[in-house]
């Protein structure tokens, strides 16, 4: 959302400064604005140190990096890290897992907040609405460690559900450590944690729809379903498209913390995604070069995905994340 707000403003400022040309000499401006520059300094230094310089540090992807030798002492190896990566079965398996999880979440997770928002919007009793909202927003603020502990307690081998099944003579099912259903488990956890929170933005979109539209549609004989289809849904469309684009741009990012916590339980075969691949190869195994290369590929592809998704949105006449 911030992007949408901020980027057009940057371009707007350019034209504004042309209207009021700065006639002051540079040194006078420097003297006048020095306090402002000092104020920006702490944030700028943090961003420089931990965003921009590490971006340059991505050159490790073309190095046989040895921590002991450092940046200057390690050897350059050209594209070796990349070729090694592309011939690594585990890398492609991580890519495949990542895409599968993204697809599952688009299919199962993405519509849930929209439907929940529509449902909540039809609740006419303010008390009930507020109560349900406060309840379903809550899990968003809990750490993944807590969320998974809760799932463990309810669905785990010794959890509530399985105990219930066992005491009633039924076969228990193990979902917390079953590689076959792991991706569904991830999606379920994501829905439990964030679907409620996700309704906020859709509720705001619905609230912005002119109530007069509903009234005249009803007068013209439109039932609840047609009002939803012809008024509510079109009213939410820009925000749905925007969030879809953001999600598509993030295709290669899937719940890193969430998966890292459970990878050991189901094994890397079904749980290794790009981010965990980078973590285990780099930090755990010390293959700094290949891990950085994998991270770099992810970053570059993600950037192109965002740009491409925006292009498509513009084609369809939507605003997208930034304007043309």
């Amino acid at each position: 959302m911030a992007l949408k707000q901020a980027l057009p403003r940057v371009t707007a400022e350019g034209s504004e400064s042309q209207i009021t040309p700065q006639k002051m000499p540079f040194l006078a401006r420097l003297w006048r604005d020095a306090p402002l520059l000092v104020m920006v300094a702490p944030a700028a230094i943090v961003l420089l140190l931990f965003t921009y310089i590490p971006l340059l540090g991505s050159v490790v992807a073309w190095m046989d990096y040895v921590p002991f030798l450092g940046f200057t002492g390690s050897d350059w190896v050209g594209w070796d890290n990349f070729t090694a990566l592309f011939s690594d079965q585990a890398f492609w398996s991580a890519v495949w897992n990542t895409l599968q999880i993204t697809f599952l979440q688009l299919l199962l997770f993405f519509p849930v907040p929209i439907l929940l928002a529509v449902l909540l919007n039809t609740v006419a009793v303010p008390m009930a609405k507020n109560f349900v909202q406060s309840v379903i927003y809550l899990p968003h603020f809990l750490s993944w460690v807590i969320i998974i502990a809760l799932f463990q307690q309810v669905l785990g081998g010794a959890g509530v559900v399985n105990r219930f099944l066992i005491t009633h003579g039924l076969t228990p099912f193990e979902v917390m450590s079953n590689p076959d259903t792991f991706k569904l488990l991830l999606t379920t956890q994501a829905i439990w944690k964030d679907a409620g929170w996700g309704t906020i933005i859709f509720l705001a979109a619905i609230a912005a729809i002119d109530p007069g539209l509903y009234e005249s549609a009803t007068m013209d004989g439109a039932g609840a379903w047609r009002r939803f289809w012809h008024i509510t849904l079109p009213g939410m469309r820009p925000i749905i498209v925007l969030l879809l684009i953001l999600r598509l741009g993030d295709s290669l990012t899937v719940g890193f913390e969430q998966i890292l916590l459970q990878r050991d339980a189901v094994g890397p075969g079904s749980a290794e995604v790009l981010d965990t691949f980078v973590y285990y190869n780099g930090v755990v195994d010390g293959s700094w070069g290949t891990a950085t290369a994998a991270g770099l590929i992810k970053g570059v592809v993600s950037l192109f995905l965002v740009l491409a998704a925006n292009k498509i949105a513009h084609r369809f006449g939507e605003e997208g994340v930034y304007k043309r």
């Binding site: 140190l49 981010d275 700094w288």
Partner: peptide, 11 residues
Amino acid sequence: FGPGMIPVYLM
């Protein structure tokens, strides 16, 4: 865009 996990770790 942001740098990957590894370059930040090295930093």
